[in-house]
């Protein structure tokens, strides 16, 4: 750098680039960080688990070490009848979401209440824990917070799971992994737009609806409908099963791929699925050679298809 102009130039470059980074990285990060989490954000991260993409505990995105969302109407400790409650069960060694690990992500007030009333700092991944989302009114303001029900009510993960039958368990955490791994978000956004999507796709999210969630999988290129509130528009599990197995069974013009491979080898009754036979029968139906399409096998309880359908039905 023999020339004086390059000394000045390189300093100016540092100044320009540094200022740009300050405005586009530091200022937005500080601003976004000051936003408190809503109860939606708490529900989302508690049902999805720590990470929805690559992570130590699940490097191949197979849905390992994810929480289970249950709907219970019996107290897991006493067995007494309670109001129907949505609880998030973290069995032993399932990593807690970011809002539990780093409560300041939840924002000042929700973090303080979650720690004082919700006792989330007593939760331990070695033991597992059950969480619920609650709200409290303080000074006329509604503050959502996370309650560690294992500490406050003595709900143990195994006992809580036992109070929910198969239809009351949603494998939302594993389903989010399937949603990310299978690239659903390349075509379906999870972000209704603020300007024109209200009527058709429902309300757009608010600023605090994502604290603690990773990745948000908003998607950028919509080739199918937005799915943010799809569970409210269509809550039929039967429709979802048919649609994922072959979308053209329920929507003849759909360009969605068939996700039949997520069913695995065996269906819910333990019968080996004959994919070639099914496809041949479907082709005959599509060509008008038979009147009825072949029966869609029900996904097994531990299949990837079931988790993905749970995730989609949970998008309310």
């Amino acid at each position: 750098m023999a020339f004086r102009e390059y000394k000045i130039g390189s300093r100016m470059f540092g100044l320009a680039f540094g200022t740009s980074m300050f405005i586009t990285l530091y200022m937005p990060a500080v601003d976004i960080q000051n936003v408190s989490a809503t109860s939606i954000a708490m529900d989302r991260q508690l049902s999805f688990g720590r990470v929805g993409g690559f992570s130590y505990e699940d490097p191949f995105l197979l849905g390992w070490a994810k929480p289970i969302t249950v709907q219970i109407s019996q107290d897991p400790k006493t067995g007494a009848a309670i109001e129907s409650t949505r609880a998030f069960v973290y069995e032993k060694d399932v990593p807690f979401p970011n809002g539990i690990r780093h409560p300041r992500i939840l924002g000042t007030e929700p973090a303080a209440v979650s720690e004082s009333k919700g006792r989330i700092n007593e939760a331990s991944e070695d033991q597992g824990a059950v969480f619920i989302v609650r709200e409290v009114v303080e000074g006329g303001v509604m503050i959502p917070y996370i309650e560690n029900a294992t500490a406050t009510r003595g709900w143990l993960p195994a006992a809580t799971l036992s109070k929910a039958n198969e239809s009351q368990r949603l494998l939302v955490g594993k389903g989010k992994i399937m949603f990310v791994r299978e690239g659903c978000w390349w075509c379906h956004t999870l972000l209704p737009e603020q300007t024109q999507d209200w009527q058709y796709f429902g309300a757009p999210p608010m600023l605090g609806d994502f604290n603690g969630e990773s990745p948000t999988a908003f998607g950028s290129d919509r080739k199918g409908p937005d799915l943010t509130h799809v569970g409210s528009r269509n809550s039929s599990r039967e429709w979802m099963v048919m649609h994922f197995f072959n979308p053209r069974l329920v929507q003849s013009h759909s360009i969605m791929p068939r996700y039949d491979y997520l069913w695995g080898e065996k269906d819910a009754s333990g019968t080996v699925i004959d994919y070639d036979g099914w496809r041949a029968a479907y082709t005959a139906y599509a060509n008008g050679e038979s009147i009825y399409p072949p029966e869609v096998p029900l996904p097994a309880a531990d299949s990837e298809a079931r988790a993905l359908i749970d995730f989609v039905l949970n998008l309310k």
């Binding site: 980074m21 990285l25 954000a41 690559f54 994502f210 604290n211 603690g212 969630e213 990773s214 990745p215």
Partner: peptide, 19 residues
């Protein structure tokens, strides 16, 4: 910087913005 959210577990809109 752009890939740091994954490593440092930045979440939510911060992560979406950094993406």
């Amino acid at each position: 910087v752009g890939n740091s959210p994954e490593f440092f577990q930045l979440t939510g809109l911060t992560e979406a913005y950094l993406t």
